[in-house]
Amino acid sequence: MPLVNVPEPTWREKLKRFFMVDLIEGLKLTLKFNVGALTDKDSVKGYGIYTEQYPSVRPQVAPRFHGAPRLNMDPETHESLCIACNLCALACPEDCIDVIPMDIEIMVAGKPRKKKVLDEFIFDTSRCMFCALCQEACPTACLELTQEFELATYSRAGFVWNREMLEQGRESRKFEA
């Protein structure tokens, strides 16, 4: 078995070892970061705080990020854009969407007609894998996966969102900076 061939240290290396230059350089680096954390808050020179200050400063998610679902409403009439077509439920590979329609009587040109509208919309976020196939299936751009990412709850039942939660958004505590 051969020995690993390492060249003899040069005089320069020996002197560096003798005066413990490497140790001093290490100390210099940590001191630089310590001073930088106190003076250079926004890490302009690269020696400040690097970590994400999540609850006080919310992170910028990617533009294509899929988060919490939302049912969009008509901005003028404030009526749901959903036409209860059930296409989203059919598109969902996880089968986590439940569209419950109901029939209402409306008058069209003086005659009573039946119209199918949305009664309840159940979205199980615990089973959702945020693929956004439902969003693509939606013909009226009603169902949308937003950039919201805080989906944690204290109970399993809290993961199941109903129509109200989907339309109004869920209440969550936001920390101030």
């Binding site: 970061f33 310590n34 954390a37 705080i49 690097y50």
Partner: peptide, 10 residues
């Protein structure tokens, strides 16, 4: 605190 600052944390 000092350990955090040296590791670029808060």
């Amino acid at each position: 605190k000092i350990s955090a600052f040296m590791q670029a944390r808060l």
